[in-house]
Design a protein around this nucleic acid. Sequence first.
DNA 1: TATTGTTATACTCTATAACTATA
DNA 2: TATAGTTATAGAGTATAACAATA
Lengths: 165, 165
Amino acid sequence: MPQTPATLDAVQLGSYFALMDVAGLLRHAVEQQLRDDGDLSYVQFQLLARLALDSPTGSERMTDLADGVVYSRSGLTYQVGLLEKVGLVDRAPSVDDERSVTVTVTEAGRERVATVIPGHVEVVRQQLFAVLSQQETRALGELLAPVREHMRSAPPRSATTRRRR
Amino acid sequence: MPQTPATLDAVQLGSYFALMDVAGLLRHAVEQQLRDDGDLSYVQFQLLARLALDSPTGSERMTDLADGVVYSRSGLTYQVGLLEKVGLVDRAPSVDDERSVTVTVTEAGRERVATVIPGHVEVVRQQLFAVLSQQETRALGELLAPVREHMRSAPPRSATTRRRR
DNA sequence: TATTGTTATACTCTATAACTATA
DNA sequence: TATAGTTATAGAGTATAACAATA
């Protein structure tokens, strides 16, 4: 890792690399758990969890699902296709807009999420929250939530691929 | 993203997802910059930067390079092989231990790092530090550094692949 | 025997561009 | 014309297991 590059000071650099390293290690651990316990990738888990836990109806349009989860549209089609193939979601044309596709978690999908969550939570606790106090946990979230908002509203340059919002 | 799974409270969940989302978005932005400006993946940049900026000699053994880099040994061989093929590093048997391989940045490798760093720094500044004050930046680093230490010393279960330390 | 590293192989994921269909 | 989504294709990255060589 660089020590004195162009124009980030040492504190910024340290924070940047700590963030990337921690997230990388955590994702690695979490992907292994999801694969072992539920044969899911992290992205598939995100999609399923969003449908099963965040959506009142268990349904979302493809375009809305793409928000924040996946980077390219074809990638979303691919992942949803995999989930459909194994019966964890259904796909159907939207009622109001024939161009849209509505994705819905199946019962099996909800069960899969339920199967996977305890181990998932356990990994996150061991890897991340074992080291942080309640206050620190809160502080971390409060630091990062605005950053996420900023990143989502200000996509990087050369946004050749269309993205929602 | 889940709202009330098994046994993480809402604050923990929020911090967890904020961390993963921010790091994912940041990595995405940064990978694009590295690819555009220097035809490097993030991992390749990490390896080059470590050799060029962290190592006094510009050299490291494969095994030491693997330290802190997440993935498998064969993955490291693959990435170093790519870097060698385009002349950014050299590989040679270590002098003290014939089993080991010593990787060294070439002059071209140093130049590539120098080429890429300004744009890299700019992306990180825009995406991450535009939103954080000095104090917040410091706080973020101080929160995450111990987490990283913990994760590195306590690898996840089923460490089937050997890893250093 | 244990460690260092490579190779062969297979697989997953992602992105680009071209395409269809509806608004 | 613009938007929603799919498909074809191609490439990058990763992991596993078997392997050779040295300690």
